[in-house]
Nucleic acid binder design. Structure first.
Lengths: 224, 224
DNA sequence: CTTAAATGATAGCATTACTATTATAATTGC
DNA sequence: GCAATTATAATAGTAATGCTATCATTTAAG
């Protein structure tokens, strides 16, 4: 299982980091510490100085792994999508029915995340909250085209592509598979955030994961 | 028409500004200049110092209108939703069929914006680009609950509520109207941004506003 | 035409994001 | 086992940012 982890992690485009954070103790501390601190403070108030104190290192040392705090966040998001891709692949292995496949991947992309003990230094619950609250900030920037050319969004695009292909195998004439998938993914993140902070923008129903239910049904109705 | 404008503008919760920017020449210059500059530089690289140079004023003077650049952006977004609400109301006046009403408001919320000559100091095309690229940054912050209590998101919530009521009047048993509406609004913004910068996350089709078409159809299928 | 309010000019301050330099520890090669 | 390389720590520094404070000047209202 750890080999799979390394595979995912190392597959992360090398443009995101200067030195692979998975290759050393300090690197792994940076990952763990930054997840804790970004989750706690939000990305605006998170600084590499605070992080360096938290992990008993120095700013300069962290800069040998990541060019900037923007690169560090990009790495975490990229890791997250690699992990989601891996979970999606596992969840549809040996499932032949395309509609069932779609239901399962939509569940993975919209459900509340539980900790995955396979990856020690990553707290997936916190990382999921970071993706919900901070991920859009990495592409809503003027540098987006440059970062895109360096592969910062590669894993996210692969996830969207994978679900789009399932949709196409259900209905080969459906015209908007990518639009539907990115709408579901971003939508689910927004709904989880709104449920916490702006509840009048969503519909939270007790004893039901209404977000997953909503998007599963929506996907099936839409492509019919 | 200008009275209506003032009504919209002044209805903006007074907590967002210190001094009403619509009440003076300098205030209006701040609005116009900030829209130009945020659109040009992005919110990160936009500073009140640069703005003050652009409008031949000073940082200190701008701070007499807005507590921070975050407040200024919040004002612009609030203005935008007030304006959208006004356009939505106009567009369904005298239309009795609820499905037609829904089609029309979804169009307004998802279409590409054209300049509205009724509001001189606001360039709606640029403001729309700002809303697409920057609006989520005002609520994806740790202060969101505080800002919410001050009414920063009031107009946005009203817009969502208005469309939700149309949906309920089409199908009174539909369980997720707010979720559907906020999914459509945020989704459409993402799709416009993706079409420009990350086209593999969307499906752009020539000679058709595929974004509006997609969300109009999706809304009707979903609530059936 | 006086007085208050609005704006401008200038300075300053703590923090941020990042770089540079030098010292010390840990690894690796032989 | 020791030199040589590399990784990390310690410290200092810089330009820019976000914002505040002070005081002078212009403008507008009574």
């Amino acid at each position: 299982m750890n080999r799979f982890q390394n595979k995912i992690t190392l597959n992360i485009c090398e443009m995101v980091f200067i030195k692979d954070p998975n290759s050393s103790e300090l690197g792994r501390n940076i990952l763990k510490g930054s997840i804790d601190l970004i989750d706690e403070l939000g990305f605006e108030d998170f600084t590499l100085k605070k992080l360096s104190k938290g992990i008993s290192s120095t700013e300069a040392s962290i800069y040998r792994y990541f060019e900037s705090k923007h690169h560090l966040l990009s790495y975490l998001i990229l890791w997250y999508w690699g992990w989601q891709e891996y979970r999606m692949i596992l969840s549809i292995t040996n499932i032949d029915n395309s509609k069932e496949q779609l239901k399962r991947v939509v569940k993975i992309l919209t459900e509340e995340i539980k900790e995955d003990s396979n990856f020690a230094e990553i707290n997936e619950v916190k990382l999921n909250r970071i993706v919900i609250a901070e991920a859009s900030k990495i592409y809503l920037k003027k540098q987006v085209d440059h970062d895109n050319s360096l592969g910062f969004f590669k894993k996210y695009k692969e996830v969207v592509q994978m679900v789009s292909e399932i949709i196409t195998s259900i209905n080969s004439t459906y015209k908007y598979p990518h639009m539907l998938v990115s709408t579901i993914i971003e939508g689910a993140h927004h709904q989880r955030y709104f449920a916490q902070h702006l509840p009048s923008l969503t519909d939270v129903i007790d004893n039901e994961d209404s977000i997953t239910t909503f998007y599963q049904k929506l996907a099936l109705k839409e492509i019919q």
